Computed example of a mutant assay.
Amino acid sequence: MSKVISGHAVSVDGYISGRTPDGDEEFGRGLGDAPMLFDWYFDGDTPSRVFDGFRLSEPSARLFDALAARLGAVVAGRVTYEHSSRFGGGSPHPAAPLVVVSHRPVPGIGEAQTLVTTGIGDAIAAARAAAGGKDVGLMGGGALTSALEEGLVDELVLHQVPILLGAGRRFFQQLPKHVRLRLLQAVPAPGVTHLHYEVLR
């Protein structure tokens, strides 16, 4: 069976967004001159083989493209979907269709996108059906938390950026039980360390 993989850029203290001076969230950024959590997508000299416009360092490109090539479909939570400008009506992955999981209707969802309102298990099942035997990517802290609670996540990749944001939106939400991980790979790269874990059951 295909695997479910969740990956995201995070600060060392576990945030995916910081706070602006007026208290609003800014996805992927901290205060003042703090770096974007996604700067490493564009700061290198190695073009991605999967994503047009991405230029990463060589170690980041090698890991990032290998993971991206495994995906046949992507599941995104509602908050991630909205913060990402609804992915322009398409998908965050150029070759993998998007399934959006939400507890309520999503007005104006793209024709190329699938909405599932009956929970993360059904969303992952729909993504597996669309993935053609390849793996499923999972985006968003809320979706990840729900999937971890139901034992549906196989691998977790944290692209850890060396900054402490101190406040904002945390990637991991509260879990009802602990989740044990086994480190598969740690790849240091300019501006980021890639931590690839297996989720133990």
Rank of each mutant, 00 (worst) to 15 (best):
E111C: 01
R128S: 10
T114C: 07
Y81L: 06
L98W: 01
G132S: 09
P176N: 02
L165I: 02
V99N: 02
I120M: 07
S146L: 15
G119Q: 12
P94E: 07
I124Y: 05
G133M: 10
G108F: 04
S85N: 14
G151P: 03
G89Q: 09
I109A: 01
H83P: 00
A95F: 12
E149R: 13
T118A: 15
A95Q: 14
T145K: 14
A95E: 15
S85W: 13
G89I: 09
Q160M: 15
Q174S: 12
L152K: 07
T117S: 13
S84G: 07
L115F: 01
P92Y: 12
H159Q: 15
I163F: 11
G168A: 01
V136L: 09
L156A: 13
G141V: 05
A130M: 15
T80P: 01
A143E: 10
V179W: 00
P105H: 12
V101K: 07
G168Q: 00
T80F: 01
L184D: 14
G88T: 03
I163D: 01
V179M: 00
F172N: 02
G110D: 12
L184K: 15
I109M: 05
L184Q: 15
S84P: 04
S146K: 12
A130D: 10
V116M: 04
L183I: 13
H93G: 05
V99T: 12
L158V: 06
I124L: 14
P176S: 08
G89K: 05
L158M: 13
G121I: 08
H83A: 11
L165G: 01
L164M: 14
S102V: 06
L152Q: 07
A112Q: 15
G89W: 08
D135R: 01
T114D: 09
L184W: 07
L138D: 08
P107Q: 04
F87Q: 02
S146E: 15
